[in-house]
């Protein structure tokens, strides 16, 4: 009898319809920032060349041009940071992009960041806590439309010990 009950239970559970897929026709137009910055403070060694990892997340369904898009006209992702006291920064190093094409034009290949991406910033810093302010300039598209270029404020926090 218990066996029978168990089998009935198993049968009921198995018979539930699968969840329907969500609406994938257009990523939300109202996403206020297509890219966000992970502001987690970092700790590095003082007086020694270290690399800060600037982590960015891209909202689901969007992509941004990489630092090296395939056309001059496309707006590249670029970070600009103001100099900070006690910090000597080298040029930022950008990750390689991935290939992307719009479905209606598979031959036109673009170079984009489609998921989270990390910009590396080599620095040498004096001991102490530091704050570097700047902006990430980027231009996002989804699978069928492009959004105007935006500037994301970035505040890099780290301690050199």
């Amino acid at each position: 009898m218990v066996l029978g009950a168990l089998m009935i239970c198993a049968g009921t559970l198995a018979a539930q319809p699968a969840r329907q897929m969500g609406d994938l026709t257009r990523a939300s137009v109202r996403a206020t920032s297509y890219v966000t910055y992970d502001a987690e403070p970092q700790v590095i060694e003082a007086g020694k060349r270290s690399v800060l990892a600037l982590r960015f997340q891209i909202a689901n369904g969007y992509h941004v041009n990489s630092h090296t898009p395939k056309s001059e006209l496309l707006i590249p992702t670029k970070i600009t940071l103001q100099p900070a006291a006690g910090v000597k920064a080298e040029a930022a190093e950008y990750p390689a992009g991935t290939e992307f094409s719009f479905s209606f034009s598979p031959k036109d290949k673009l170079n984009v960041y489609a998921r989270d991406f990390t910009v590396r910033l080599p620095i040498v810093a004096a001991a102490g806590t530091h704050e570097m302010d700047g902006t990430l300039r980027y231009q996002a598209c989804d699978h069928a439309a492009c959004y105007p270029p935006k500037s994301l404020p970035v505040r890099v926090l780290f301690t050199a010990k």
Partner: peptide, 20 residues
């Protein structure tokens, strides 16, 4: 149950992302 599941699966509509 298996038969019911099969009928349910046959009736199920799979939503795929529409072309833009």
């Amino acid at each position: 149950r298996r038969i019911a599941m099969q009928t349910a699966a046959a009736n199920q509509v799979m939503l795929t992302p529409a072309a833009p």
